[in-house]
């Protein structure tokens, strides 16, 4: 497991301490709704929600070194929490908040249970068992057709304030920034450092005296909670939820985004989500030019395999390599 490493410490320092860059990016994102049309705005809102989901996945994959195939379940719980509650209750802000919190609590309880079941044995078990649970989640949602309307999905109303996409854009951006700060604090906290120690060498972490199972479960709970919140935001944005939010494909989207962007540093997840969404949109439009582009997922699959094999730090790592080279050259001069 030690072969997959995050960005080297020196690189990390320069990248992470670059608060100026982050502020500039946020400012650019804040200005965008004034210069672009509705479709781009909607796309960006979606990317903000999915970025939080991908970052929560990164806590598992990049920081703790476990792979989940059922992470979408928590996303789905968040989404269904909102949709079921609002389909049956008045769409006031209070109700939306309440629904989000209930979904959050359910997600946390389930993540403790699954974490305890599977992480006791081996990290590889987590991958298999989460896959099984995700499938059960999909089946349950399909069977409860009278509530969820299954694969066809359910629509619902949200309060009129949230219907204003301009305002919701800023809410989603704020959600992304706050989530990033929270997860950043979490991953740099002592607990987060223990998680990295577990990823690098679990046995050693155990011998030092850490209860690694407990830390791994904490990691799954935090990841599950953030995924649930991302799901709730996604549901409010789409005003439509179907069983596809629970499926393995959703988890694999986060996996692709995290690996392509670069795992083990939350930036990669955001960048990866942006790349996957924009490229997916662009490539599926090319399907009119040549039908081969209908299968654009193959391109991502191959890109993903190449990245895992040859550039385990993802696009962020590649960018860092290039900028470092340029910096080294300018120093020489």
């Amino acid at each position: 497991m030690q072969q997959i490493k995050t960005v080297a410490p020196s690189v990390r320092k320069s990248l992470m301490n670059n608060w100026m860059l982050q502020i500039i990016i946020v400012v650019i994102l804040a200005v965008i709704p004034f210069i672009t049309g509705r479709p781009t705005q909607n796309m960006l809102i979606l990317i903000f929600c999915m970025s939080v989901f991908a970052m929560s996945y990164d806590i598992l994959l990049g920081y703790t070194g476990v792979i989940s195939f059922g992470h979408a379940m928590f996303f789905g719980i968040g989404a269904y929490g909102i949709s079921i509650y609002l389909a049956n209750a008045k769409a006031t802000m209070g109700n939306i908040l309440l629904a989000t919190l209930i979904a959050l609590a359910v997600s946390m309880i389930i993540s403790v249970f699954i974490g305890f079941l599977s992480l006791r044995v081996k990290n590889t078990y987590y991958a298999m068992i989460t896959l099984a649970f995700a499938q059960v989640g999909v089946i349950l949602a399909e069977k409860a057709r009278h509530i969820t309307n299954g694969y066809d999905g359910m629509t619902f109303r949200v309060s009129s304030v949230l219907m204003n996409k301009m305002l919701f854009y800023y809410i989603a951006l704020g959600f992304l920034v706050l989530s990033f700060i929270f997860m950043w604090k979490f991953t740099t906290s002592p607990t987060g450092r223990v998680l990295v120690a577990i990823r690098e060498n679990e046995q050693r972490a155990k011998f030092i005296g850490f209860n690694t199972l407990r830390y791994k479960i904490i990691s799954t709970v935090v990841a599950g909670a953030m995924a649930s919140l991302a799901g709730s935001m996604y549901a409010i944005h789409m005003r439509f939820v179907s069983t596809s939010v629970l499926g393995v494909a959703k988890t694999i989207d986060a996996l692709l985004a995290t690996v392509i962007g670069g795992m083990g540093n939350l930036y990669g997840a955001i960048l990866g989500t942006g790349i996957v969404n924009f490229a997916g949109e662009y490539l599926s439009k090319l399907a009119k030019v040549h039908p081969i582009f209908e299968r654009w997922y193959i391109i991502f699959g191959l890109l993903y395999i190449l990245i895992v094999l040859f550039a385990p730090q993802g696009v962020i790592g590649l960018i860092k390599k290039i900028t470092n080279k340029i910096a080294a050259k300018s120093v020489k001069r």
């Binding site: 497991m1 072969q3 792979i67 990290n123 690996v259 191959l302 993903y304």
Partner: peptide, 12 residues
């Protein structure tokens, strides 16, 4: 490399 194996076979 267990992590890379799962990631790669998923890609496959």
């Amino acid at each position: 490399q267990h992590l890379a194996q799962i990631l790669l076979t998923t890609g496959l």
